[in-house]
Amino acid sequence: MDKTTLIVFSDDLDKVLAAFNIATGSASMGMEVTMFFTFWGLNVIRKDKPSKRSSNWMKRLLGMMNLGGADRLKLSKFHMMGIGTGMMRALMKKSNMPSVKEMISLSKELGVKMVACTTTMEIMGIHKEDLIPEVDMIAGVATYLENAKESKVNLFI
């Protein structure tokens, strides 16, 4: 079976939507799809609230600024303190486009595998319990490469 592998590095709303568009599209074409969420991309698959406070003050500080949750994503441009992003969300809804949260459940229905990167979780103080239940596994670069070298479509977003 043909494979698609995506690295979701960004947590920009527009880029994340493009990633899910390709993921759900690939799955619909009968391909096996794996999405690796790393760095800021982890915010997409984080719960809205962290499970526990980190023991390290820098991780705590980062956690206060870097909030997770698919509903919190911002546009890469014209965010305008939320006005631009809000308008884009409204426009998308008007065009019957799924939200990121809806894209996550749609991806699961279609069998897309979601992987969280252990290294960035550790650096940023994100725990396993902070991730949404749709996440299939946590893993590192070897897992990504094993998938990527067999994938015809392999993107870094």
């Binding site: 759900t24 599209g25 799955a27 619909s28 074409m29 019957n96 486009m97 799924p98 229905e109 279609l110």
Partner: peptide, 14 residues
Amino acid sequence: YGLLCPMPVIKIAQ
């Protein structure tokens, strides 16, 4: 009706 890409392809696959 009224659905944009990738929805028609997803719906048809389902």
